[in-house]
């Protein structure tokens, strides 16, 4: 099939961007979206043009590096699918596809559709951990953890930190990301001692980074490639509230 791509091009963080249009010819439906872009880039290089800069690494939906807004939806809008696992069989011959970067004040553009997500790392550095050093830890079976709790924690821990939640949210809020991380640790007995401190510290950093707030629209949950539940945000709100009100 043949497609037309309308892609955001921006030389670097300082310059202004614009859309350019490129043809994508002889696209095969077994190609992944990124493989389609690889082919377009090969053509661009052959034509002496600058290839489109986009982030990707593992290309199996787990590293969270890929980050494209495809036709107005982060990762293209197929349930539980990251851009790298989106395949061309979902597109129609002759279609025009708009490709934009994650757009948020906290995610400055590096080039074209590649953005800087260091803000997520800084939120993690503020409290996204359990304070234990290497060594001297009790036996893995010393604290029994019910299967339900372990599973719930794992549901939250599945977050790949791609930032699609921010990109989809009309407020560019990072609440789903922060909630997933806080919930994973706060649900477990190991994370209990510093759970309020964690919630307060991570939310404070989140605000500092310039993310918006949660209006509970649910679009983050809808685009999340790991289908992280919106309910974790309620858990974060609870832990934050109790921490703030009780001065923990």
């Amino acid at each position: 099939m043949n497609l037309t791509l309308k892609v955001w091009r921006q030389k670097n963080g300082q310059s202004a961007g614009h859309f350019d249009t490129y043809p994508a010819r002889d696209v095969i439906e077994d190609m992944s979206f990124l493989e389609m872009l690889d082919v377009v880039n090969e053509d661009l290089i052959a034509a002496g043009k600058d290839p489109i800069a986009f982030d990707s690494d593992c290309r199996e939906g787990i590293c969270g590096m890929c980050s494209l807004v495809i036709n107005g939806v982060p990762h293209g809008g197929h349930r539980g699918t990251a851009t790298c696992q989106l395949h061309m069989r979902h597109f129609k011959d002759g279609e025009t596809i708009t490709i934009e970067p994650w757009r948020a004040e906290a995610f400055p553009i590096i080039k074209d559709v590649a953005v800087n997500r260091a803000a997520f790392d800084r939120i993690m550095q503020a409290g996204g951990f359990i304070s234990v050093n290497t060594g001297g830890t009790p036996d893995g079976n010393a604290i029994p953890i019910s299967k339900a709790v372990a599973d719930k924690s794992m549901d939250a821990a599945a977050c790949i930190g791609c930032g699609a939640c921010v990109a989809a949210c009309k407020n560019a809020s990072a609440m789903l990301f922060v909630a997933a991380k806080v919930s994973q640790l706060n649900l477990l007995p190991q994370g209990e001692p510093e759970k309020h401190r964690r919630a307060l510290a991570m939310v404070t950093q989140m605000d500092k980074e310039g993310f918006g707030s949660c209006t509970v629209t649910g679009s983050c949950e809808a685009v999340c490639p790991k289908e992280i539940s919106l309910s974790f945000i309620a858990k974060l709100n609870r832990d934050y509230g109790i921490g703030a009100l009780l001065g923990k």
Binding site: G140, S153, M154, A157, Q190
Partner: peptide, 8 residues
């Protein structure tokens, strides 16, 4: 070590 870090 991993259990103590909160690996589920």
């Amino acid at each position: 070590q991993c259990v103590a870090q909160g690996v589920p």
